[in-house]
């Protein structure tokens, strides 16, 4: 018999701790516009329960861009309805969230390709080109 056979009843209420974050995010966006400096909030470091996170997530809404990174488990980079505010979640190989950030940047740090990797890419490309 499998445990799925037994129905589950989740119960959780938001603690209200997520509310003040909106103001903080607004401030971070202002800084991004004025100085170009990106910033981030580590959500795991805050006393937020899953309901808080759900509330925050739905408050920020869904934007136009969603990126996925497969590296040691999946990471997702979702733009929220406020452009420049990204919801970043890192998962391990088993799909469990190991860290979660709100990143305020034009493009999330991890998405940008590293010059060394681009150089390596060029090398591969050259092999392809030379094989033509």
């Amino acid at each position: 018999m499998l445990p799925e056979a037994i129905p589950i009843q989740p119960a959780m209420e938001p603690s209200g701790n997520a509310r003040p974050l909106l103001r903080e995010i607004d401030d971070m966006l202002r800084r991004l516009l004025e100085t170009g400096e990106p910033s981030a909030i580590d959500l795991s470091a805050l006393p937020l329960n899953p309901a808080d996170l759900d509330w925050l997530r739905s408050s920020l809404g869904v934007g136009e861009v969603a990126a996925r990174l497969q590296a040691n488990g999946e990471s997702t980079f979702d733009e929220t309805a406020c452009p420049g505010v990204w919801w970043v979640a890192h998962r391990n190989e088993h799909g469990a969230v190991v860290a979660q950030f709100i990143e305020v940047a034009f493009v999330p740090e991890l998405i940008k390709a590293h010059p060394d990797d681009i150089a390596t890419g060029r090398e591969q490309l050259e092999v392809l080109v030379s094989g033509l």
Binding site: P3, I6, I8, Q9, P50
Partner: peptide, 24 residues
């Protein structure tokens, strides 16, 4: 309470590790 007969697993905050996820 709950729906229908038999026990229901608790989830979320009001639960221990031995819930439906844990047993899975």
């Amino acid at each position: 309470g709950g729906r229908g007969k038999g026990p229901h697993f608790r989830g979320g905050q009001e639960a221990t590790a031995v819930n439906v996820v844990g047993l899975q």
